[in-house]
Simulated assay, not measured.
Amino acid sequence: MTRAATSLPGLSVHLDGQRRILRTLPEEVPVALVFNGETQAVMMASPQELRDFATGFALGEGIITHPDQIERLEIVTHDAGIEARMELNSAASRTLTQRRRAMTGPVGCGLCGIDSLEQAVRPLPRVTADLRLTRTEVAHAGDALRAHQPLHDQTHAVHAAGFLMPGQGIVLTREDVGRHNALDKLIGALHHAGITPAQGAFVMTSRISVELVQKSALAGCPVLIAVSAPTVLALRSAEAAGITLVAFARRGGFDLYSHPDRIETGASDVA
């Protein structure tokens, strides 16, 4: 249940014939995020780095504001799936009670099952972090992330979220079958490593959807970079939250949308 991938037999068929193969495929299991004895969400996820996932989910959903508010975190494996059991301190428990959400989400959706439409487009804190990235750093961010994806190399079926720091490149990466899960894991890993999200940019292998912007804003990360396109709602949300949104960052170029001042795009950036 806790393996990231499993090799399974198959048949590869081409116009000129067929052959038996052994293909490494990513595991995908239901992970219940349980706070104070009550299930807050059940997400389909890759079953590794679940402490990072649980912490990042709690931060990204605004349930906690600092990992220290989790008094106990336990990963429990069952035949049907995995539980991440968390006990919160009194302040975080009050916050959770005030905004209880029931969310059961498949891989492709980080907002499925929300019982209040207002929660889907909730107001976000404004990100004011003073960060500067060069044109070269941003243009090569997607390609740089590609070098930090061992599970993708095995399976070709998972997303990645990386953290780009000025002058240092990609310093931390997490992978998962769900793009929002990968970002949750990254947020949790950053906090466990003592790295503040305001110090760099999130880099995603996926399209930019609104829940990625929401998680970035709640984490306090000022720049969100992806190899694919944003949705209109994601772009509007990034603009309102003060987040610099960059799309199609691959093969030496990128599209720059909201709050472009954090990216140095002038000729002086070129070495």
Rank of each mutant, 00 (worst) to 15 (best):
L15A: 15
D16H: 09
Q18T: 10
R20L: 15
I21S: 10
I21R: 09
R23H: 15
R23Y: 14
L25V: 15
P26G: 09
P26Q: 09
P26K: 07
P26C: 08
P26N: 08
E28D: 14
V29M: 01
P30H: 00
A32E: 13
A32C: 11
A32H: 11
A32G: 07
L33Q: 03
L33Y: 01
V34E: 09
F35E: 02
N36G: 01
E38F: 08
Q40G: 12
A41H: 08
A41F: 05
A41V: 01
M43H: 09
M44Q: 12
A45Y: 01
Q48L: 09
R51L: 12
D52K: 00
D52P: 06
T55P: 01
G56W: 01
F57P: 00
F57C: 06
A58F: 03
G60A: 08
I63R: 04
I64N: 03
H66L: 02
Q69T: 06
Q69K: 04
E71A: 00
L73M: 10
I75S: 04
T77Q: 10
T77E: 10
D79P: 04
A80R: 12
G81I: 02
G81D: 03
I82D: 06
I82R: 02
R85H: 06
M86T: 03
M86W: 01
M86Y: 05
M86C: 06
M86G: 04
N89Y: 04
A91P: 05
A92Q: 06
A92L: 02
R94E: 14
R94F: 09
T95V: 05
L96P: 06
T97N: 12
R99S: 11
R99K: 10
R101I: 15
R101Q: 15
R101Y: 11
T104R: 13
T104A: 12
T104I: 14
T104N: 13
G105V: 10
G105N: 11
V107Y: 02
V107C: 06
G108P: 03
G110I: 02
G110C: 01
L111R: 12
C112V: 00
I114Q: 14
I114G: 11
I114M: 15
I114N: 12
D115Q: 11
S116C: 05
E118W: 04
E118M: 03
Q119E: 14
Q119I: 10
Q119N: 08
V121D: 12
P123S: 02
L124F: 07
L124D: 07
P125F: 00
